[in-house]
Design a binder for these strands. Sequence first.
DNA 1: CGTGACGGCGCC
DNA 2: AAAGGGCGCCGTCACG
Length: 563
Amino acid sequence: MLRVDAGGAVDALPELDAGALPAAVAALEAAESPHWVWADARRWYPGLLGAGVRIGRAHDLRLCAAILAGSAAAELARRVHPPAPAWVSAPRGGAERVPAAAALFELDGEAPAERAPDEPATAARVFTEFGRQQAIVRDSAAPGALRLLLAAESVGGLIGVEMESAGLPWDPGLHERVLEEALGPRPAHGGKPERMAELAAEVRTALEQPGVNLDSQADLLRALQRAGIAVATTRRWELREHEHPAIEPLIAYKKLSRLLTANGWAWLAEWVQGGRFRPEYVPGGAATGRWATNGGGALQLPKQVRRALVADPGWRLVVADAAQLEPRVLSAIARDPAMAAAGRGRDFYAGLVDRGVVEHRDAAKVAILGALYGATSGESGRLVPRLARAYPRAMAHVDTAAREGERGGVVTTFLGRSSPSPSAGWRALQSAASQPGASAADERRARSSARDWGRFTRNFVVQGSAAEWALCWMGELRKRLMAMDAGAPSARADASGPAFAGVPHLVFFLHDEIIVHSPAELADEVAGHVRESAAEAGRLLFGDFPVEFPLDLAIVESYDQAG
DNA sequence: CGTGACGGCGCC
DNA sequence: AAAGGGCGCCGTCACG
């Protein structure tokens, strides 16, 4: 770990054994709130939190290297400031040389096997890489935006570790009640839950095929077709189109099967301990900058089981989501004042109806989603042209991104995260189709894959910029919540660990939604900070452009009471 | 036995 | 003619 003091001087924390580190960090944090620099929050921060030590700011070299390696705004600066050899993996099979962030961090104490004898020590290499990243930002085409992006990404790295450490308060008894109400009593080892077995029997009887295995897609599809149900897949939406006594119990069976396999008793046993659900968050895990998770399916918690997400006694959940975040972000990044005005002081979709762009709120939603995702058919495709007439700048913005993708180019978010280049296979398909004598089938395939990639880049600029807004929102909120720490009351939530006992803290983040676990008497104050942070994030990104980011916010004891 | 592709479906 | 973005995880199935 390095620390940067108020004057910008960088030095290394002396080598300390793991036991002495937290106290040393805590003392420096209290004395001077340094800007820490580390290779990877995941490597250092869990141990600090376990010892009750939180830090304010840390530059995360791993997350920032990934952004800078791809950002179009840093393309020239990257050539001027190439990675030090130790950051670059050996060429493999003629592949291009790529920054090997992971390799550096393995050297950070764990896997010295591949380290050359003359390589500098870890602290010096962290120092070198930090300097390189600063130089790239300074010499980039957008230093201000990139600086903000790297700061936001880094704070995301802190928050991800903090949320895993604190855990999401989860009541296993309530979860079991949900399971028993839906599935029946917990089956003995290996057995099917009662309700599922009953439904399966109904389906087999209705199909007159006693041997069919409903869990086998191939078997089930054949059985449906033999029974005269003309389906090409076993997807729910397609099944729903057909009239047959087997359909209703089959859909019910699939619903229960999903609950059992994804969030059933096995999930509970594996993921909930001591009243906390602790998934591993992966900030920046998606190409667009959205987060991912490893294990537990934390970003796909079905509404059905959200009853089990409950605050500790004496605590509350402050649940907030940004209403219609993506169209608002689009209006801002495209600087479309008319579109921004539709969302000011009101529900964005209602704004579209008021302005006569579409007739109903539902139509507004479908039209907007169509514009963001590149729909061209169906109701959505029919409505998009109306949107284009009302908000030409916004539509031009996403259309330009789509065209860039269709020709194999890269697009970039508001703060400077760039999309990946299409694969070699994609490019080969395009160039094959452009050769004289290419078959009609090749041309069709190439056009189709070009449009696929265009839809990706169209969505990328909006989804990625929205992810940046959300990071800024959370970062600002975290800062405010940490400042509340000083006056923390006596109410504790010890299951959250020593770093979070008694103080409000983030416990969940889902793209445009956050949950803060807070002592009940502080919940109103927390809610104020959540709202002010959203406004602050808007100003930080878009200055005085008149776009608003209203929240749906609720202070509840149980997640299912929100929204 | 493990691995990877696929269908399907949960969330935004 | 068809034309919806991003994920993770489950079970099944083919394969080595």
